[in-house]
Design a protein around this nucleic acid. Structure first.
Length: 479
RNA sequence: GGCCUCAUCGUCUAACGGUUAGGACACCAGGUUCUCAUCCUGGCAAUCCGGGUUCGAUUCCCGGUGAGGUCACCA
């Protein structure tokens, strides 16, 4: 098996959103797929100190952990190529930049930002593309670190292979002299990511589509540095469902951790992100993370952007919730119980949960679904009056039926769902009522909720005493 | 504007050049002794347009159109 080293290299400029998470996920899947020969690296690209946001590094780490995307090398865990934060690697970039200077492939930029702007304006006015290399100084000053350092490009046509996009090509106009070290001494992304990928022996570079147009520049730099290029893979954007733009923080992209707080399962998120722009060619829709690791492949990644469809995500989340064992679900759902359930008996909660499992779309639905199991619901006759069948009965008839139910249930000795159902069936025959009337009425009078699970199971779990109390209250309620 | 990329149901997608263009989400209808959900069954719904090549194009080629990206001392 070949060695695969992938990396996720975010900038600490805020929270992590789904687009970034998917890029990380794909790189991670690829590494995990290679088993012991695969390494996933987390490197922080903090070379723009202006844009850096306090706390983002920890936040990125937390987000990956939540997803279960564990890195083998990188910040916090270390590794053979420490440090994994670019701002702590400045000496390395300086050294590599100096090599380019010595080889005559980099030079100090003597122009002021104002002068550069003037060049740009002029090119724009003349309707031709601006290329810095048209203004290469003949006698650049010696680089003393106070000026930006530019790569002296060697414009040429390139055709290259992208693991996702296939054959790609570009002309020499795509290549220009770009800045590799800024005047503040920090390197630019264009330069340092290539240096680090080389040093860290990254074999597969996965990144999103926005970098496609700069790839020719990168290729030119690989050549100048005499580096073997890694496998390049360009991932299509994740787009907002109604927007036409890539999903960015500005377009309402959410913090990936917020999904967890809203009751989404990380494995559902992983499944959803993986199948957003990738499929295994079969008709399988629901995947465990292990299945994804086995079947993921770059050549089945889509070339075109995909929209983030919350409906599908919601459905997938439900699928994963249902796939959990009751014990596991119970652990996951811990922070979501309604306040009144906190002190409840664990056994009792587990029974309630088993009834709710099929009904949860997110874990956050739990309180609305289970409240009446833990606290006395407020009597609300509008639920009865709003029922098509029940409103045909007079209040007296309704109470008469409830009293009958109360009577038979009160003498019930075996309080199991099966025998409760049997008793209710007998009552059905005795009263000559339709199930739609009797069951609905009892259901409402014991839960006072617009909907609830099957009546027999609900009553069984509520317990005889509670059921008797609630029915008694309903019967004696003045309305 | 230059350059680059992309294009199948509303959405995510499948289809060695030969299929009644398949699946999933959503939606609609029905079933599971009541409601909600699950589950099951059925329905609605797509190859951007125009030229080629070919006996035959969703598929290959060319041209449009549309969409997106990029042209920073940001990544």
């Amino acid at each position: 098996m070949t060695t695969i080293r992938t990396r996720f290299a975010p900038s600490p400029t805020g929270f992590m959103h789904v687009g970034a998470a998917r890029t990380a996920l794909f790189a991670w899947l690829l590494a995990r797929q290679a088993g012991n020969n695969g390494t996933f690296i987390l490197r922080i690209e903090d070379t723009d100190k202006q844009r850096e946001v306090e706390g983002s590094i920890a936040h990125i780490g937390d987000s990956l952990q939540w997803l279960g995307v564990q890195w083998d090398e990188g910040i916090a865990v270390g590794g053979p190529h420490q440090p994994y934060i670019q701002s702590e690697r400045l000496e390395i970039y300086k050294e590599w930049a100096q090599r380019l200077v010595d080889a005559g492939r980099a030079y100090a930029d003597p122009y002021s930002p104002q002068e550069l702007d003037a060049f740009r304006e002029k090119a724009k006015a003349e309707k031709r593309p601006f290329l810095y290399r048209d203004h290469r100084p003949e006698q650049p000053p010696a680089w003393d670190g106070s000026q930006p350092l530019r790569f002296k490009s060697n414009p040429q046509n390139y055709t290259w292979h992208d693991a996702v996009m296939g054959e790609l090509s570009s002309g020499e106009e795509a290549i220009d002299d770009f800045i590799i070290i800024k005047s503040d001494g920090y390197p630019t992304y264009n330069f340092c990511h290539i240096v680090d990928d080389a040093i860290m022996e990254v074999t597969h570079v996965l990144r999103s589509q926005e970098f496609l147009s700069s790839t020719p520049k990168f290729l030119n730099l690989y050549d100048a540095l005499k580096l073997k290029r890694p496998v390049l893979a360009t991932l299509p954007f994740v787009m907002a469902i109604d927007g036409k733009k890539k999903l960015g923080k500005r377009d309402g992209a959410k913090d990936i951790l917020d999904y967890g707080k809203e009751g989404y399962l990380p494995e559902a998120m992983v499944n959803f992100l993986a199948t957003l722009g990738w499929n295994d060619g079969t008709e399988q829709e629901v995947f465990t993370t292990d299945e994804l690791i086995k079947t993921f492949s770059l050549d089945r990644v889509q070339k075109s952007p995909a929209r983030f469809d919350e409906q599908r995500f919601l459905w997938l989340n439900g699928q994963h919730i249902r796939a959990l064992s009751l014990e596991e679900l119970s652990k996951r759902v811990e922070p979501f119980w309604p306040e009144s359930a906190r002190s409840a008996d664990p056994e009792y909660r587990l029974k309630v949960l088993s009834l709710a499992q099929d009904r949860l779309k997110t874990l956050a639905d739990l309180p609305a679904l289970t409240q009446y199991f833990f606290e006395e619901p407020a009597i609300d006759w509008s639920l009865v009056d709003g029922n098509k069948q029940l409103k045909k009965l007079s209040p007296a008839q309704q109470k008469e039926l409830l009293q009958a139910a109360l009577d038979v249930l009160a003498s019930q000795t075996d309080w199991s769902a099966a025998s409760i159902q049997e008793t209710l069936n007998q009552l059905l025959e005795k009263t000559g009522q339709k199930p739609g009337i009797l069951f609905s009425l009892v259901r409402i009078a014991t839960t006072w909720a617009p909907f609830s699970p099957a009546l027999d199971e609900t009553l069984a779990i509520l317990g005889k005493e509670t059921v008797q109390n609630r029915l008694t209250q309903a019967v004696s309620d003045p309305r």
